[in-house]
Computed example of a mutant assay.
Amino acid sequence: MRCTYCGVAVYCACGAAELEPGAIFRLRVADLSRRQATLDHLIPKSRGGRHDADNVAVACRSCNSSKQDLMFPAEWIPNRDLFTYIASSEALPPLENISRMGRLIGQLITELDPENLPPSVAEVCAVHHWRPRDVHLALAEMHRAGAFCVFAHPCSPSTRYYRPVTDPHDVFAGAVWVDGWS
């Protein structure tokens, strides 16, 4: 069994699904706890989701506890600071009533080198001493304003890129695609 969200091998306390025999000895106790299999509600019960087979998925304890009552992938993805990237652009469409953090990110993307791999939110926060939550809120604000298209890397469903929209008629602007989820 694997976690639906991050793909890590999980185990069930009842013994029906166990990790490889050697894996248990290589993991610390804290890692074993994070890898315990749980059932997660795709649509949280607090948002009207039902407790039935169509609405539950196997998740590691770590993903289930960090997801809380958020929706995947629009509001939450696993390890989002490490697996969310900001692509470079020469220009952005004009943005009105954007937050200070949004303006800082807009300035940052125009200074990024398009020849290099895009930086992750974790890398940007480490360099600029920004809080990840503030960056994600600003990216979501800019996405709603039509400045970014969000798309996923096809090989890794938990990896997404914020690509600046330079054409206001871009058909993908405003869409989030993650491994079949939209």
Rank of each mutant, 00 (worst) to 15 (best):
W181C: 09
S182A: 09
G49Y: 05
P93D: 07
C14E: 06
R133I: 07
V176E: 14
E75H: 04
V56Y: 09
L32Q: 02
V10G: 05
E123I: 13
N97P: 04
N79P: 00
A140R: 12
E20V: 01
Q36E: 05
R61M: 07
M142A: 07
A74H: 04
V165Y: 01
A13V: 12
G22N: 03
H51L: 04
Q107I: 12
Q107N: 13
C6G: 09
R100T: 13
P114C: 01
A152W: 10
C125T: 11
I24M: 01
P94G: 07
V150G: 03
C155T: 11
C125G: 01
V176M: 04
A138S: 15
R26Q: 13
D54W: 12
G49R: 06
V8D: 08
K67Y: 02
E115H: 14
R61W: 10
G180R: 02
P44W: 07
T110H: 09
D52R: 13
P114R: 04
P114K: 05
C155P: 06
L139G: 05
H128A: 14
E75P: 00
A145K: 09
E90K: 12
D170S: 08
I77W: 02
C125N: 06
C60T: 02
Q36P: 00
W130A: 04
R133D: 10
L42V: 15
P168T: 02
V135E: 08
T110E: 04
P94A: 10
L70N: 01
E20K: 00
V121P: 05
R133N: 02
H41Y: 01
H169A: 15
T84S: 14
E18I: 04
L117T: 07
A126F: 02
G106D: 02
S46T: 10
L82R: 15
R100E: 10
N64D: 13
P94W: 00
D54L: 14
R103G: 06
R2D: 13
C60I: 12
V127D: 13
D113Y: 08
D54C: 08
L139M: 08
F172G: 10
Y11H: 14
A17F: 06
P44E: 02
H143C: 00
D81C: 10
I105G: 06
R34E: 13
P78A: 01
R2V: 10
A138Q: 00
G106A: 10
L27M: 11
T84H: 07
M142R: 01
V8E: 09
V127Q: 05
L95H: 07
C125P: 11
N64F: 01
P168G: 02
N97Q: 11
D52N: 07
W76D: 03
P119N: 00
L92C: 04
L108D: 09
